[in-house]
Amino acid sequence: MSAKRIDQIARWTVTAAAGLILLVLGYILGSVLINGLPVLSWHFLTSRSSNLEPGGGISMQIFNTIYIVTLSMLIAVPIGLGAGVYLAEYARPGRLTSLIRLATESLASVPSIVFGLFGMIVFANAAGLGFSRLGGAATLAILNLPLIVRVSEEAIRAVPADLRHASLALGATKEQTIFSAVLPAAVGRLATGVTLAAGRALGESAVLIATAGMSSPRYLTFDPLASGETLAVHLWAVNAENSLSDAARIANGTAAFLILAMLAVSLGIGWFARRLDRRLAGQG
């Protein structure tokens, strides 16, 4: 076979592989939405789930998911942003900095189920919280920290040095420069990163099963110490418990809702990114 022919075949194979990847994505999204969208009635979204009778909805799971993701971001963003600022603006090459970087990378590689074990023993048992939204959110926050640290550091490093120099030349201290010049300039990228992290928290479940639990309080409450089953955990639990005749219907609806939420997050990220591009283009 001539080199030209091999070249053609190889290119064709590689392109076909890329097409296959698109096909797999299309199949997953398509089958989840086709099976799940018909389930997503107003009734399904606004009624409570039941462990005993068919016909339950996911209202509490939606509430718990929003609650836990928000709380975990409230914990993780200040710490992650602070660490990002430290690594981008203060850290000098040395033992301590490489230790912090090693810790961040290691934390990013810890399997989520190990975070679940850790959260169970620390928050549910040692701290005596039992299954609680707070314990779930705190564990989720630690899981998400490395991602937030990385995007914060990258966002801060992407701010042009001129901006810092101008601020310092005006007599601002380093911290004033960070808060009034650097962070405002980095806000677009920070928002993108935080949305990405929130999207990941939205679908996380292994961390939450034994920290936030697989049940919801009997009535609507903002109590952080109440247990809180999220959508992703619910999708798993209705299958694992398999006590309901309509478990498949509920799972289909929950999966479709999760996919819609993920698509919304992706659109949000795209929107932030486009705005950012436009702003940078305006500056250039």
């Binding site: 997953i28 939205l202 679908g203 479940s205 999708l235 799972a251 999966a255």
Partner: peptide
């Protein structure tokens, strides 16, 4: 971005 439970469900 697809949650791992959704991968499991499919």
């Amino acid at each position: 971005g697809i949650p791992s439970v959704v991968y499991g469900w499919v």
